[in-house]
Design a protein around this nucleic acid. Structure first.
Length: 782
DNA sequence: CAGTGAGCGAGCTTCCGCTTGACTT
């Protein structure tokens, strides 16, 4: 039996550390937090100075029991949780649960899992820092108060049903998306005309090549035309050439957030996918810990990286760098994300190779030499005009880190529009005459900020100091699951733009078309998200403020330094907050996001759009009217905010009779489960590519025929006028009664076609009596 | 299943941060 028990958070770390420390230590993991606030009644005694009530959650009981047993048998317990606020709290909770004295129990920390780091940590133990623990408790309690006070307000005040929630992080994330959407919708593009001249000159081999020079931008088409006119008959010559050496430096090694961004840009992964794959790589020992905000690399890692660069590319490619973290909220408990062994190139894990390559390359590049470029800027004179044109070229003199890796660009990066296509210029000399092939003034429109992707939202949250590496992906899952936000593509719209062209001393104008506004896998707020956000901003502007987290983080820091009492801090927050809560419960009206669209001409009844119990809808008339109001669901792409009166009225055109087929009427409508076609007492649901408002008889009939045929092929037998059916499924035959499916016992599957009604009834009864095991039910309160 | 949307008012839901499995179809 080992004399010492050392506890870390992650089981994968435990294994590695046990190898390093040898026989004197048994290393175990506690799998993160082992205690949390009780779920009922807040878990906090506000009146007793915010005294928290902690419990060990059911799913943690097993780990805790095991740790208790081993702790009892060990001479000494060492706490080696992460060196950050949460890690310190975990150590303290371990003391509480394992019956250890926090004032004497050995607490050690390290930021990297390397032999020297761990050995020196063990040589210099300290004790649990209660100030830091208190800062964590304040953080935890504040989040609980905010979440568990705000969410019930939504349940009371929202007309929409479902499990709604609000919180310090998620609600602000939704707000970012909501505000971006509104700024896009109200954006008015402004056009300008950019002049480009195309010249030809001879390259080094004497071959004629074309190159581009840029002129000014004009806000009006007329001004652009005047400039082109002024150039008719002009001669062009090189007035000046400047050659400037420039440098490009590699980006810092990956943190969680930058890894998510790069995997999104280069591989198209959502943040959850990235994290699942990274977790697999970590568990297999291929990469360091993947939930980190640090850009630091251990000395051991640096040695591996530089020697790998040396062997692969040579000494001149090595350039050792220390990166500094840009954001203040970083807690830097771990290293940057890097390969554990730079010599490993192939990882034998499904789908994870590409992500590993990305990490490997980024890590390599971070310690490689700057790329050296030579930028040439040539000014071109126009004989008839005072203005000059500018041609730019770039030549790579030394590739440096670009040999392995170049960081991707977001579509909201400035200059990304222009500076990506800088090619080479042919050799030019001052005074050289140039032949103009053509000059164009192309109309360009200003663009709104792009919608967020999962990864660009994470970037923004990190900039604001909101959320942590371990919560970025789950936060996005939450706001998607709650229906506040949707991830989808948007088709672009065609837009005309003008091109004025000067060629052979003649000016012509042509109109061309471009596709604009197309976006892929972007986050859109739903009506629910917009309505809930507006409500929260109206009544809880302090918590919803983008600077709120940063402000309370400063106070948590004060607590951690022992300069502020944690319950005083909470009290200062709580008093005005609780007042807002009371006030809102009393005064706020039910939230429905109602918007008046107009009046129905025949009846004079009001037409409105609002949130209903089942989602966004339009309504004609009022509940208090004698006649019942009429309702219609909004289409997926429509929103309460932007729907027009005409679009709303269009929605009332369902149900619609399309015509007849086999002497029976064909009707299209929208039901609870979406749009469907009704014919001859049967229902055929419409797939997404069919818009129920567009469907006509000619499209409906093939759908009926095809679905009917597919159904026939799957049907084995029908009982009681189709109330009970025997169907063929992908895993074998099954029984369908009403909406419910019932499995057929294995031994009866082969002869399913011979089953009679009595036997079928018996199977159904048996299944109902002994329902198949479902996923473990959620724990209810005792 | 192919309907609704208010309100009546049980009984349900919820936060953020640490960590990984154990569950189905």
């Amino acid at each position: 039996m080992a004399k010492n028990l050392l506890i870390v958070e992650s089981p994968a770390k435990a294994k590695t550390i046990e190898k390093i420390l040898g026989q004197d230590f048994e290393v175990k993991s506690c799998f993160g937090h082992i205690r949390d606030l009780e779920k009922d009644e807040m878990g906090i005694d506000v009146k007793k100075g915010f005294k928290p009530r902690y419990i060990v959650p059911d799913e943690k009981k097993k780990v805790v029991t095991e740790l208790k047993q081993i702790a009892k048998k060990s001479d000494e317990v060492w706490l080696a949780t992460d060196e950050d606020r949460e890690g310190e709290a975990i150590s303290w909770h371990l003391c509480e649960v394992l019956g250890l004295d926090p004032e004497s129990t050995k607490r050690i920390v390290f930021h990297e899992i390397t032999k020297p780091a761990i050995k020196s940590a063990v040589a210099a133990p300290r004790t649990v820092d209660m100030n830091l623990v208190n800062a964590q408790q304040a953080r935890r309690i504040l989040d609980r108060i905010v979440g568990f006070e705000l969410s019930p307000i939504l349940w009371r005040k929202m007309s929409m049903r479902g499990n709604l929630s609000a919180g310090r992080v998620q609600s602000v994330a939704v707000r970012l998306i909501a505000e971006r959407e509104r700024s896009i919708n109200s954006f008015v593009p402004v056009s300008s005309f950019k002049v480009d001249a195309f010249f030809s000159a001879k390259d080094i081999n004497g071959k004629a090549v074309q190159f581009k020079a840029e002129g000014s931008k004009y806000n009006q088409a007329d001004d652009a035309r005047k400039f082109l006119e002024s150039c008719t008959g002009a001669k062009y010559s090189v007035a000046d050439i400047q050659v400037k050496p420039t440098k490009k430096s590699p980006a810092a090694p990956f943190t969680t957030s930058t890894l998510q961004q790069e995997a999104s840009r280069k591989l198209g992964y959502g943040v959850s996918r990235t994290m699942i794959l990274a977790q697999k790589l970590y568990e297999a020992g291929h990469i360091s810990y993947m939930r980190t905000d640090s850009v630091n690399l251990s000395d051991t890692a640096m040695d591996g990286i530089t020697s790998q660069i040396n062997t692969s590319y040579g000494k001149e490619y090595v350039q050792v760098r220390k990166f500094k973290n840009k954001n203040e909220s970083a807690q830097e408990a771990h290293e940057a994300i890097r390969p554990t062994n730079m010599e490993t190139i192939k990882v034998d894990i499904a789908d994870a190779q590409k992500l590993y390559d990305l990490i490997w390359k980024r890590t390599m590049a971070s310690q490689m030499a700057d790329a050296e470029l030579e930028k040439t800027i040539a000014k071109i004179e126009i004989s008839t005009n005072k203005e000059q044109l500018t041609a730019q070229g770039e030549v790579l003199k030394f590739d440096g880190f670009l040999k392995v890796y170049m960081e991707g660009k977001d579509d909201d990066d400035e200059n990304s529009e222009e500076d990506d296509a800088e090619g080479m210029l042919p050799p030019l000399s001052v005074g050289q005459q140039l032949n103009l092939r053509e000059m164009k003034a192309t109309e360009r429109f200003s663009r709104p900020s792009p919608r967020y992707t999962e990864a660009s939202l994470v970037k923004k949250l990190e900039e604001l100091g909101i959320g942590r590496p371990s919560t970025y992906a789950p936060t996005i899952s939450t706001i998607l699951k709650r229906g506040y936000v949707e991830k989808r593509d948007k088709e672009g719209v065609k837009r005309d733009y003008r091109v004025l062209m000067l060629k052979d001393d003649k000016i012509t104008t042509v109109t061309e078309q471009e596709n604009t506004g197309a976006e892929k896998a972007k986050l859109f707020p739903t009506d629910l998200g917009l309505v809930v956000t507006d409500f929260l901003v109206q009544y809880f502007d302090d918590v919803m403020d983008y600077g709120f987290t940063a402000r309370i983080e400063n106070e948590f820091d004060e607590i951690a330094l022992g300069k502020m009492k944690w319950n005083n801090m909470l009290n200062d927050f709580y008093i005005p907050f609780k007042e807002d809560v009371q006030n809102t419960l009393e005064k706020a009206e039910r939230i429905s996001g109602e918007k008046e669209l107009g009046f129905e001409p025949e009846s004079g009844k009001k037409v409105i759009a609002r949130m209903g119990r089942y989602g966004p809808m339009v309504q004609i008339g009022d509940v208090n009217d004698e006649e019942k109001p009429r309702f219609a669901k909004l289409k997926n792409t429509q929103s309460i905010e932007t729907i027009t009166y005409d679009e709303a009225m269009e929605l009332f055109k369902l149900p619609r009779v399309l015509g007849e087929f086999e002497e029976k009427p064909v009707q299209v409508n929208i039901g609870r489960f979406g749009p469907y076609i009704a014919h001859d007492g049967k229902f055929y649901s419409l797939s997404k590519e069919h818009d129920p408002y567009e469907v006509d008889l000619d499209t409906a009939i093939p759908i009926i025929i095809e679905k009917r045929k597919a159904k026939e092929e799957r049907t084995i037998k029908v009982f009681e006028k189709e109330k009970i059916q025997l169907l063929r499924g992908p895993y074998g035959p099954y029984i369908k009664k009403g909406l419910r499916n019932f499995p057929i016992p294995k031994e009866k599957q082969e002869s399913a076609a011979n089953l009679e009604i009595a036997e079928v009834q018996k199977i159904i009864e048996e299944v109902i009596a002994n329902p198949p095991k479902k996923r473990a039910p959620k724990k209810k309160k005792a």
